[in-house]
Write a protein that binds this DNA or RNA. Structure first.
Length: 193
DNA sequence: ATTATGATTGGCT
DNA sequence: GCCAATCATAATC
């Protein structure tokens, strides 16, 4: 079984999928844009919601790849992940930032009135709000409405760094970004040498 | 520019 | 009861 969508093979490791998703266009009910920032999470990863094994909340993380896992963050925000690897494993990729391209008006309406369009989808909580993500989308497949994925165009230059907002496995470089994007939730450190 | 704080709720110890 | 894959706002350097 292939589970390949928009040129991304979701049946592979979370870090690999997280990297491959950079530059991919994601739309939810026609609203969205280009993925510019992701983070990988795996079951063998203390920072992952799937770490303790299947539970009601993380059930979709243990479902088939190329499905959506939505969770509530800090009791306030809805955040969206794409499930990867194989059913039962518990791996996923958090969509942390998107370059807004389609449905800008609906994004602005949902987000309130941020002065800068740069902040529309610059962070997992903001992405959730701008794209209208709720628990109702948890467990839905990525290859059917309201979702639509389109492949990245041309070569994509990817930067990496440590993940954000976690307290365990802080050293893993499992955050990925589109080099030079100005829509990050936070900047990437200049590549060390 | 960096650092602090409140909001708000479900999941877990 | 405590903490969390966050964000907006306010205060201070």
């Amino acid at each position: 079984m292939t589970a390949t969508l928009a040129g991304v093979d979701f049946a592979t490791d979370a870090p690999q999928v997280a990297r491959a998703l950079i530059g991919v266009l994601v739309l939810v009910d026609g609203v969205g844009g280009r993925i510019v920032e992701t983070e990988a999470y795996d079951r063998e990863d203390p920072a992952s919601h799937s770490h303790g094994g299947p539970r009601p909340r993380n059930a979709s993380m243990f479902g088939p790849p190329a499905y959506v896992y939505v969770y509530r963050s800090y009791g306030i925000h809805w955040c969206m992940n794409f499930v990867c690897r194989e059913a039962g494993h518990g791996a996923g990729v958090l969509i942390r930032a998107i370059e807004p391209l389609f449905g800008l008006d609906r994004m602005r309406a949902r987000r309130g009135s941020p002065l800068d369009d740069r902040l529309l989808c610059a962070g997992p909580g903001r992405v959730g709000q701008a794209l209208g993500i709720t628990r109702a989308l948890d467990g839905l497949p990525l290859d059917a409405p309201p979702f639509e994925l389109r492949p990245a165009e041309g070569p994509v230059d990817v930067v990496t760094g440590p993940r954000i907002g976690i307290s365990k496995a802080v050293d893993l470089p499992w955050r990925y970004g589109l080099a030079g994007s100005r829509f990050f939730s936070r900047p990437f450190r200049p590549t060390p040498r």
